[in-house]
Every structure is written in structure tokens, then in C-alpha cells.
């Protein structure tokens, strides 16, 4: 399903390069730097969770731990009651950029998700279905570098969805896109989420993205990162912070929390 519980999660990095001399002159080569400090969160199945926070606060580290690419220093992540320890096709990670394999065409990249399907016609139909879904008909045989940034993200989204995962983990999926593509992709992801109902974790810098898309907004802050806000957003789609006073209030609160005192 995609019910996620994060219990007392801590993460420390060992910094080897930094050499600090104490008074006696001895060098300390290993220094542990706490990144995540006692994170406790719970996500319901099918929830769209938007994680906000300043750059370098540990959002991506948290996502990598949930995806199983990295292990916590202490604490645990439970998925449907079982501890999550390694990457699996149940939780597909969608990268900021370069997530597609550049030596494979769009078709071949998407095929990776269904490469064990034995029925060839069914496999082809599935791939085509997802290519149509992200509106990449006609680009099946293009290599990633022949596509625009937005098309690359859509192809990667198709590759993630074709696996039929329980959860999608997206690390700033809209960064670097032009304004219009950003708006369109946002709409597509919201529609896709309403339609497929998968658990989605999305890291973003964009407060409006979080307010418009999220069923839940989580704000991480400080160093090491703690949960500063964890709020359910029970508003119907489509949303517009400008007309919903409650959202507008929350928007200003979040801006303030992230260090901008005047929300434009």
C-alpha cells in the first residue's frame, strides 16, 4: 500500500576532510555532523506529501533514506509495518535530472519497468499506454538528450509509473523547468495522483507547489533538520491560495517560517 511511518529517525554524516585543531594541536580527522534529528512522521496510503525546507537542510537525505539508498544512523522507516532497508521497485525514485539512462531511447527506458513481463504484446501495450499518458507519442525512439527538459521529466515519470509502484519519491521534479512547463507538469502530477491514488513524496522549494498539490505539507528546518510543521491540507482540487483565505494564511505562515517575513 504505501503507509509510511518514520520513527525517531536520526542521520549523521562523517566529515573526513574537515581538519580542526584543538588546543593541544592534535588533528581530529573524523567529525560527525548530524543532518536529521529525531524525525517522526506518518504518511497515509495515497497521500501526496510535499516536503519543504531551505537548501541543504536534509530533505534529500530523508528522501534517500525512505527510498532505501541510504541507511539512517538510528531509528527506522516502516512501510506497511515492515522496516524499509533497501531500494525496491515498490518505491520508485524520480530524480531532479539525469534520471533517464542516456544510452537508451524513451521506449527502452520505460521498458525497464516492465522488462519481466512475458507476454510481449501486453508489454508493448503497457509501454505505449504510459507513453500516451505522458504525451510522448512520436518520441518513442528519441534519446533523452534529444528531448526538452519537461519531456525528460515526463518520460521519467512514465518509467516510474509503469512499474506500478506503491510510492513515488520525487526530488524537486520541477526544478529547472520553464514557468509554463512547470505549471503544466504540476497539473499533470495532480491529475495523475487523483487518478492513480499512489502515495507520493515530493521535495520542493516552491511553497505554492506544496500548497496547491499536497494533501500534507511537511516543513523541515534548522541544522540538523527537525520537523517544524506537519499539517494536513484538506482542500478540494483545483486550489488557489489567492481565493481560499485559509490557504493564504498558511502560505504566509510558511513564508515566515522559512525566513521570508513578507509573502509576495
Amino acid at each position: 500500500m504505501g503507509h509510511i511511518v518514520i520513527n525517531n529517525l536520526n542521520k549523521e554524516f562523517v566529515e573526513r576532510r574537515q581538519i580542526q585543531r584543538n588546543k593541544s594541536g592534535a588533528a581530529h580527522f573524523d567529525q560527525t555532523i548530524p543532518v536529521l534529528d529525531d524525525i517522526n512522521l506518518e504518511f497515509q496510503p495515497g497521500e501526496m506529501v510535499c516536503v519543504l525546507g531551505p537548501s541543504g537542510c536534509g530533505k534529500s537525505t530523508l528522501m534517500r533514506i525512505i527510498a532505501g539508498f541510504d541507511r539512517p544512523s538510528s531509528g527506522q522507516v516502516l512501510q506497511d509495518g515492515k522496516e524499509l532497508t533497501s531500494p525496491s521497485p515498490d518505491n520508485i525514485f524520480v530524480y531532479q535530472h539525469n534520471g533517464l539512462l542516456p544510452w537508451m531511447t524513451v521506449w527502452q527506458n520505460i521498458e525497464l519497468g516492465v522488462r519481466h513481463t512475458e507476454d510481449l504484446t501486453q508489454k508493448e501495450e503497457t509501454i505505449q499506454e504510459y507513453i500516451d499518458m505522458v504525451e510522448l507519442e512520436g518520441f518513442e525512439n528519441h534519446y533523452p538528450h534529444q528531448l526538452s527538459g519537461g519531456m525528460q521529466r515526463r518520460a521519467e515519470l512514465a518509467r516510474a509509473l509503469v512499474v506500478n509502484p506503491e510510492m513515488l519519491i520525487m526530488d524537486e521534479p520541477f526544478s529547472g523547468l520553464d514557468f509554463l512547463t512547470h505549471m503544466k507538469m504540476r497539473e499533470e502530477v495532480v491529475n495523475m495522483h487523483l487518478f492513480l491514488g499512489k502515495t507520493i513524496l515530493m521535495v520542493t522549494h516552491n511553497i505554492d507547489d506544496a500548497l496547491i498539490m499536497g494533501d500534507r505539507v511537511v516543513i523541515l528546518g534548522d541544522r540538523p533538520a527537525r520537523v517544524k510543521l506537519d499539517r494536513k491540507l484538506d482542500f478540494p482540487h483545483p486550489r488557489d491560495p489567492k481565493t481560499a483565505p485559509e490557504l493564504q494564511e498558511l502560505r504566509e505562515e510558511i513564508f515566515f517560517m522559512l525566513g521570508v517575513s513578507y509573502a509576495v
Partner: peptide, 20 residues
Amino acid sequence: IYFQVATNFNFSRFETFSKI
């Protein structure tokens, strides 16, 4: 990232070698 994609999509050792 490509090796992460490989583990994410459950590549076998041979697939990691031949596809990545």
C-alpha cells in the same frame, strides 16, 4: 544515479553490467 536506478529497478548483477 545510474547505479541507484539499477537497484531501484531491481537489476541483477548481469543487468547492471550489460545495461549500465
